[in-house]
C-alpha cells in the first residue's frame, strides 16, 4: 500500500499534528502527555458520532445540516424524560433523532430535493423544538450518579469515549463486511450507475439519514447526561467541527470516499489540536482559526474548478515552451 494516498491521508494528518505540536512544545512534555490523549478522546466522545453520521450522508453525496439541531434537541429530550429512567430518556432521544432523519430522508428521496434545503428546514425545526420543549430554559439533570459515571475516568477513557470508539469500530466493520457499505460507496460514486446495477438507492438514502439523526442524538443525549444539564442553545456548536472532521477524515464532498476510521482520525486530530494548543498555552481562538483554515484549504483542494485551472495553466506553459522551441 502506498504511504501517501487518499486512504492514509487522515492518519498522516493526525500524525503530523501530533508531531508539529510536540516540536513546538520542544520536549517539555506538555503535549505528549496522558492529559492530551484524554482530552482528545473526550472531544471524540462528543463529536465522533455526529461526525460519523454526517460523513455517512457525505458518503452518498448529500449533506445533513440538521445534525447540529438534532444534537441539541436530543440532549433536552434525554434530560426531560430521563429523570426517572435514564435508559428511557436515552431511548426517546435516539428515537427522536432517528425519526427526524427518517422524515428528512423520505422527503429528500421521494421529492428528489437537494438535501441542503430539506435539512436546513430540519435544523431550524429541531432547534425550535428544543426551545419549545425546554421553555427556553437551561435544564438540570438530577441524576448526578449517572453524570459522574459517564465522566468517570477509566485509564485514559470514559464510558462516553468508549461508546464513541465502539460505534466507530462497529460502523467500520459493518461498512466493510456488509454489502451496505459497498452500496453506499456506489451511490456516492455514481448514483445513476448504482441504480442501474440494481442498488436500492432510495431505501439506503433514507437509512443513511435515519442513522445520521440517531448518531447525533445519541451523542447529544450522552453529553447532556454527563454535564447534568441541557439547554436549547449552546449545544449547537457541532456543525463546523463535525464537517471539518469528516473532510479531514478523508470524506470527499464529491461522494464515494471515506471510512469511519478515517473520520475518527479526523475528529482525534481536531481533539489533539485543541488539547495541544491548550497545553501550549495558546488562546482558545487558535483552535477555531486553525480549524477554519484547514477546512477552507480542503474545500479549495476539493473544488472541481481547481483541476480546470490547473489544466489551463499546464496548457499555457506548454504552448509557451512550444513557441519558444523553434
Amino acid at each position: 500500500m502506498k504511504i501517501f494516498s487518499q486512504k492514509t491521508r487522515p492518519y498522516l494528518i493526525l500524525l503530523a499534528t501530533v508531531l508539529v505540536l510536540a516540536v513546538i512544545d520542544r520536549g517539555r512534555g506538555n503535549v505528549l502527555s496522558g492529559a492530551t490523549v484524554f482530552s482528545a478522546l473526550q472531544y471524540l466522545a462528543t463529536l465522533g458520532p455526529v461526525a460519523l453520521g454526517l460523513s455517512l450522508t457525505m458518503l452518498v453525496r448529500e449533506f445533513d445540516l440538521s445534525v447540529a439541531g438534532v444534537f441539541g434537541l436530543a440532549g433536552c429530550v434525554a434530560v426531560l424524560l430521563g429523570g426517572d429512567s435514564p435508559a428511557l430518556g436515552l431511548a426517546a432521544a435516539v428515537l427522536a433523532g432517528a425519526a427526524s432523519g427518517f422524515i428528512q430522508g423520505l422527503i429528500i428521496t421521494r421529492l428528489q430535493m437537494p438535501s441542503i434545503g430539506v435539512t436546513l428546514g430540519g435544523l431550524l425545526t429541531t432547534i425550535g423544538l428544543a426551545y419549545v420543549l425546554t421553555g427556553n430554559q437551561s435544564l438540570t439533570f438530577d441524576n448526578m450518579d449517572l453524570a459522574l459515571f459517564l465522566s468517570a475516568r477509566i485509564g485514559l477513557f470514559t464510558p462516553r469515549s468508549i461508546v464513541a470508539l465502539a460505534l466507530a469500530a462497529a460502523f467500520a466493520m459493518a461498512l466493510y463486511w456488509l454489502w451496505i457499505g459497498r452500496d453506499l460507496i456506489a451511490i456516492g460514486s455514481d448514483r445513476r450507475a448504482a441504480h442501474t446495477a440494481g442498488v436500492r438507492v432510495d431505501a439506503l438514502m433514507v437509512l443513511v439519514f435515519t442513522t445520521s439523526g440517531a448518531l447525533a442524538a445519541l451523542s447529544g443525549a450522552l453529553l447532556s447526561y454527563s454535564l447534568a444539564s441541557a439547554s436549547p442553545s449552546g449545544l449547537s456548536e457541532v456543525l463546523v467541527p463535525a464537517t471539518a472532521a469528516a473532510i479531514l477524515g478523508g470524506v470527499s464532498l464529491s461522494g464515494g470516499t471515506g471510512t469511519p476510521l478515517g473520520v475518527t482520525a479526523g475528529v482525534l486530530m481536531l481533539g489533539v489540536l485543541r488539547a495541544g494548543l491548550n497545553a501550549l498555552g495558546a488562546p482558545p481562538f487558535a483552535h477555531d482559526m486553525s480549524m477554519g483554515a484547514v477546512l477552507l484549504a480542503v474545500a479549495i483542494l476539493d473544488a472541481p474548478g481547481i483541476r480546470a485551472h490547473f489544466e489551463r495553466l499546464q496548457t499555457l506553459t506548454r504552448s509557451r515552451t512550444e513557441t519558444q522551441a523553434p
Binding site: 463546523v240 477555531d288 477554519g292
Partner: peptide, 13 residues
Amino acid sequence: IIVSIASLALIYG
C-alpha cells in the same frame, strides 16, 4: 456551504 462554514470559524477566530 463548506466555504461559508470554514469562513465562520475563521472570522470568529
